[in-house]
């Protein structure tokens, strides 16, 4: 029979490393998919994910079991990603001048016939990554949670620890920033 998360947490708190290993194995895919949305470089992903689990281990005793362990871990993951974004915010790229051929081609097709530029293409994905990389850490967090993951304001407030009003204000600013960056991308390409 499979041991539930709460029991594994209790065992890990008592020093059972095997229990914590099982918790990692069970939740690592979810943590990695969250971290991937925020990491600026591919090689940062395992380090940030590791940070999430190290912090989780450190704070396991504070897990009260009021909500599922996965929710608790996701809160920690989002906050760790936000910290990582803030730590590396000086590395934000400032220009769209180095678009590669595939990205330029995708933008060309979008300008001429939008229906021919598919959103499932790698070029679109790398373009949106460039755009997100240029946002402030708070804007990126809000855009990712609200627009990409489709979470509600209440859920975002719970995940980030911000008030609902703060989330709404940041969402407004983030959308404005996103629109400005997108406009610059379009202008940079076609002026």
């Amino acid at each position: 029979m499979e041991i539930d998360d709460e029991e594994l947490v209790a065992r890990a708190v008592r020093g059972d490393d095997n229990a914590f290993e099982t918790l990692i194995a069970r939740h690592q895919a979810r943590v990695f998919s969250t971290v991937r949305r925020y990491a600026r470089r591919e090689h940062e992903i395992p380090d940030i994910a590791q940070d999430v689990f190290l912090k989780a281990h450190q704070k396991l005793a504070t897990f009260r079991g009021e909500s599922p362990f996965e929710h608790w871990l996701m809160r920690l993951a989002v906050r760790t990603c936000y910290d990582a974004l803030r730590k590396h915010q000086r590395n934000r790229e400032s220009a769209f001048t180095d678009l590669d051929d595939a990205e330029t081609d995708w933008l060309d097709r979008l300008a001429v016939a939008p229906e021919k530029a598919g959103h499932e293409e790698d070029a679109a994905r790398s373009l949106v990554k460039r755009l997100l990389d240029q946002l402030t850490p708070a804007s990126r967090l809000v855009v990712t949670l609200l627009e990409i993951e489709g979470r509600t304001v209440k859920e975002i407030a719970d995940l980030t620890g911000w008030s609902s009003t703060a989330v709404k204000v940041r969402a407004f600013r983030a959308r404005r920033e996103m629109r400005r960056r997108a406009a610059r991308l379009a202008l940079g390409k076609y002026l």
């Binding site: 300008a111 939008p114 679109a124 990554k129 997108a182």
Partner: peptide
């Protein structure tokens, strides 16, 4: 280029799972 269409397409792209996840 229409910024709304560009943003909509890019957001849809961001929602797609990557190849190496």
């Amino acid at each position: 280029m229409n910024t709304d269409i560009l943003l909509r397409k890019l957001m849809s792209a961001a929602r797609q799972p990557g190849k190496d996840w």
